[in-house]
């Protein structure tokens, strides 16, 4: 197990390096110039001399090989550079938003897991009954309704029914838990519903499959109570694909809540990403891509380790 974990951690390095190389060159192929967006994007009429001076100041006049070398050296020394738009360190730009995005992702995951596992299990155990039909309608609805649209419904409902809206600026949970939760619970619910629907469908189909396995029949033949059969034998095995889905969804939530963040005016990573792309802020985009790649790689590692922990049949690394 330790050998497997070490091997996986080491494999993360070339993966992330590959991402770093790809994103650097892909950005340089796409047309667009941050200096032009900054100085002309709102109708400004700078002289060409001013444009060139600004390009030089930002290092955009350097040969691409030199820019690439700067980027790789910075990466190795954990210096992601400065945003070309705000000229603030990329780490600070991302750090200021990461807490909010992580909290929404964690809250949405908790909501999803708390809803999905009981619903998915009940749906499987009461397959083709009214309970199953009802749960399937709820879960299919969750997958069909985009999170941002559900979020808009939540906002409109709060506004028109209670004449109240969630706070529009973020307060860390350790500063004011009530203000924090009253802002973030709604986007977590909006996202959590779709997330729960996906996981519940996965749990349902997994349990249906597992309940047909020989070891379940054996357990029943041994006279094990049905509740124990489900809890000890079926659930543990049925959770494996669900964990994969939960892991991928969690990683997606860190940078993928672009529209939902706009709906709730959340100052998160998704919104920052879209802004950075719109402005061709290369250094910030590179930093964000590295963050999201790291989150995905680490999440995958955690999922694989959980697989090993949950399923004794899986033996990683050999003996």
């Amino acid at each position: 197990m330790l050998r497997y974990a070490t091997k996986r951690v080491l494999l993360m390095i070339p993966t992330l390096l590959g991402v770093a190389v790809l994103i650097f060159f892909m950005l340089r192929v796409v047309p667009g110039d941050i200096v032009e967006v900054k100085l002309r994007g709102d109708g400004g009429n700078p002289t060409q001399e001013t444009i060139e001076a600004e390009r030089k100041r930002l290092g955009l006049d350097k040969p691409i090989v030199v820019q690439f070398a700067d980027w790789m050296v910075g990466l190795v020394t954990l210096d992601l550079g400065k945003s070309m738009w705000t000229e603030q360190p990329v780490v600070e730009e991302i750090g200021g938003r990461l807490g909010l995005s992580f909290q929404v992702a964690i809250m949405a995951t908790l909501i999803a897991v708390l809803i999905a596992i009981p619903l998915g299990t009940a749906s499987a155990l009461f397959k083709d009954t009214l309970v199953d039909y009802f749960i399937r309608i709820v879960t299919i609805g969750g997958m069909a309704v985009p999170s941002f649209w559900f979020g808009m419904l939540i906002i409109i409902a709060l506004l028109y029914l209670f004449n109240w809206l969630p706070p529009i600026t973020y307060t860390p949970i350790w500063v004011d838990p009530i203000a924090n939760l009253s802002q973030l619970i709604w986007p977590a619910l909006a996202v959590g519903y779709r997330y729960a629907a996906v996981v519940a469908r996965m749990v349902r189909s997994s349990i249906i499959e597992v309940m047909k396995e020989d070891y379940i029949r054996t357990a029943r033949a041994k006279g094990v109570y049905e509740k124990l059969v489900v809890a000890r034998h079926a659930m543990r095995n049925a959770m494996l694909p669900a964990i994969t889905v939960i892991g991928l969804e969690f990683a997606f939530l860190i940078g993928g809540l672009v529209v939902t963040e706009q709906v709730f005016n959340l100052n998160g990573i998704g919104r920052l990403f879209v802004q950075a792309v719109g402005k061709s802020d290369f250094t910030l985009i590179q930093g964000l891509v590295m963050l999201i790649a790291t989150v995905f790689v680490v999440t995958n590692l955690v999922v694989d380790l959980l697989y090993a922990a949950l399923d004794p049949r899986i033996r990683y690394g050999g003996r």
Binding site: P31, G32, D33, E36, V37, G278, K279
Partner: peptide
């Protein structure tokens, strides 16, 4: 998008 739009105008 604005950056690609400005590039198209410039080019």
């Amino acid at each position: 998008e604005t950056s690609a739009y400005l590039a198209a105008l410039r080019e």
